[in-house]
Simulated scan of single mutants.
Amino acid sequence: MSNKILFGFHAVTVRLKTAPKSILEIHVDASRRDQRMRQFVERANEAGAKLVDSDDDRLQKLCGTHRHQGVVARVEAMAMSHSLDDTLDAVEEQPLLLVLDGITDPHNLGACLRVADGAGAHAVIAPKDHAVGINATVSKVASGAADTVPYFMVTNLARTLNELKERDILIVGTSDDAQQSLYDIDLARPVALVLGAEGSGMRQLTGKTCDVLVRLPMRGAVESLNVSVASGICLYEALRQRMKQPD
C-alpha cells in the first residue's frame, strides 16, 4: 500500500482519531507554539505518533503548498472498498450516492467529499477522464472526509449509471433547464445524485442517462451555484427526507 501526504490541522487530526497507527510521521513547524499547535502536539503524543520538528521550507516541499498550517503528515493510504459493487453490497440502508461529472478542481472535490461525509453518502463516483483524483489538496479541503467516503473513478460513467439502475437506484441529474424542482422528487428511496461542473454542467451523454432531471430553485441574480454548494443542498435534502421516514 503506497504512502501519501496529509496536511493541515483538520485532515491530520481526523487521521489521528480514526487510524493513528497508519501515521508514519508528523512534521510540525518548530517555530509555531500557539495554543492550537500545543493542543495538536498533545493529541499526537497521546496517539503515539512520531513528531518531527521542521521549518516552513521543509513543510512546503513535503506537501507542495504554503497552506499547511504548520502540520504535514506522511501516512499509509487507507484501505477502501475495492469496488463500487462491494460498497453497495455492504450498504444496509437505502443507498445515497453522489456522482460528479467534470469536476477537475481539487478544492471543489474536497468540499464535495466533506459534505458527502456530513450527509452520510455511501460513495462518490467520478469518471477517470474528467475528474481530479485524491491528492494532498483534496485531503486538506476535505478535512478528513477523503479517508471516510469511498471515491470511485470509473472508466465509463454512463455504463456505471446504467449498472446502478439495475440495482433500482434512481439516477437524478441536476440541470438549469429541468422542469421539476429538486423538492418534487422522492429522495428517500435509493438514489444517485448527479452534478456537473459549474457553468458547463453534465456532459450530454451523462444527462441522457439520468432517469430524471431536476433544478435547484434560483431566486436571485446568479445563474448557478458552486458544485460543492449544490451537492450540499441535494444531499441534505435527501437526508431531510430520510429522517422523516419511520424506522
Rank of each mutant, 00 (worst) to 15 (best):
S181Q: 10
P150H: 07
I103R: 00
C63E: 06
K244E: 10
S31P: 02
P95N: 01
V72M: 11
K17L: 08
L16G: 01
D29V: 11
S31R: 06
N226D: 09
S22N: 06
A111I: 00
V91W: 12
I134V: 03
L6T: 03
A230I: 04
L16C: 04
L161G: 13
R242N: 05
T148S: 05
K4P: 01
V191R: 02
V194Q: 04
A47S: 13
Y183G: 07
V138F: 00
L225V: 01
R38S: 15
D56Q: 15
E223K: 04
L187Q: 11
F152W: 11
R114S: 01
L59G: 09
R215A: 03
A131K: 00
V229C: 09
R74A: 09
Y151T: 02
V214H: 06
Q39F: 09
I26Q: 10
D85S: 14
D89N: 08
V172A: 11
G220H: 06
K128M: 06
A47N: 04
T155E: 14
M80W: 13
L193Y: 05
E25N: 08
I185E: 11
K4H: 08
H27G: 07
D129C: 12
N3Q: 04
G133C: 09
S181M: 12
Q69G: 02
N3P: 14
L84F: 05
R74Y: 02
S181R: 09
D211R: 13
V212A: 15
R15G: 05
R240M: 12
L84M: 04
A126W: 07
R159Q: 15
T155M: 06
S200K: 10
R67A: 13
D105K: 00
D184N: 04
Q245F: 08
D247T: 12
V229M: 11
G220C: 04
A19T: 12
K50S: 11
S175V: 00
T18Y: 11
A123Q: 09
D34E: 09
T174M: 04
R215K: 10
Q35A: 11
